[in-house]
């Protein structure tokens, strides 16, 4: 049972990581909570459903196309709504509320267009998992784990060694100073939305395959995604993935004892705990969470 719970925790953690990593990229660079990030994944999933199940386009085209559409979606939100607000020097709190508005609009739009019923994407067959020392894991779940690991390595190298990554960190630290060295902060912020939302698109695809599609799928995961980012440290990209695994494991081992109805509350309790005790998370630097 321990091994199965461990695997369950790792799978859950991987899914949260898909959301938290993209979110973290956007947060570190823009310094406000882009709540609508979950909706990006939802929109991506429905787009995939529409093109694959509706129009019958083969997956080797729809998969990359979906990721592109997700990136575009995030980019447009930033361009049309956040940028004008930022130009007026509004606080991050207003941007948070605006992002909640966007999230509600998008989720309900999906419901309006596709209906509230859960949609199933039958691309890969589901079946009994592969048995491994008494625990079971399915091929899709293994694929998700591997993809997230690759993502982790990729983000870590990107953030530490690549030029864009270093520039993003500079902009995150101090946008004004970065500007004086000739860095175009706005362009970097655009990039953060493009990359972050593309990862959300990937998340949408994988979650659709593993859990099916419904209008609130992305938003439900945002809570855990955000919590994971806080746990790992919102200023650290690889940290957000570590935080996701911590959350996934605590949730799944936690309900060994607690009634499972409390599972969703665990994320919030952890969130509160970290915000109060260690707001910079495990890997982050303290960036003004407190007075």
């Amino acid at each position: 049972m321990f091994l199965q719970l461990l695997i369950n925790g790792l799978i859950a953690g991987s899914i949260y990581a898909l959301i938290s990593s993209g979110f973290s990229i956007i947060y570190t660079t823009n310094k406000f909570v882009h709540f609508a990030h979950g909706s990006t994944a939802t929109v991506a999933a429905y787009f995939l459903y529409w093109t694959f199940s509706g129009l019958g386009i083969p997956i080797y085209i729809t998969f990359p196309l979906t990721i592109f559409v997700a990136a575009l979606f995030g980019f447009l939100i930033h361009l049309v709504i956040y940028l004008p607000l930022k130009k007026r020097k509004t606080s991050s709190v207003i941007l948070l509320i605006a992002s909640i508005g966007i999230m509600i609009f998008c989720d309900n739009l999906m419901q309006l267009l596709f209906g509230a019923n859960v949609k199933i994407l039958s691309i890969f067959p589901h079946g009994r998992g592969i048995e491994f020392l008494g625990a079971y894991i399915t091929p899709i779940q293994i694929a998700i784990l591997i993809i997230v690991l690759i993502l982790f390595v990729g983000l870590w190298t990107f953030s530490k060694y690549s030029r864009l990554g270093k520039i993003m960190r500079a902009v995150a630290d101090n946008p004004e100073l970065a500007k004086t060295t000739g860095i175009n902060s706005v362009r970097i912020q655009h990039w953060s939305f493009v990359i972050g939302s593309a990862i959300a698109g990937l998340a949408g695809i994988l979650i659709a395959l593993e859990h099916n599609i419904e209008p609130s799928m992305g938003t439900h995961l945002m809570i855990q995604g955000f919590t994971a980012a806080v746990i790992g440290g919102v200023t650290s990209l690889p940290g957000s993935i570590v935080g996701a695994y911590v959350l996934g494991l605590v949730e799944n081992f936690g309900i060994w004892w607690l009634p499972s109805g409390y599972k969703s509350a665990i994320a919030f309790v952890l969130l509160l705990a970290f915000l109060l005790v260690r707001p910079q998370g495990i890997f982050g630097i303290n960036k003004g969470a407190r007075e």
Binding site: V93, L96, G261, A265, F268, V269, L272, L275
Partner: peptide, 27 residues
Amino acid sequence: ITAKLKGDYLALATLGFGFVVYAVMLN
């Protein structure tokens, strides 16, 4: 609980509180 938090951290902590209360009502 939230005395020392500010801005969006405060907002999200209160959101969390709201959800925990809901979970208790439910369970």
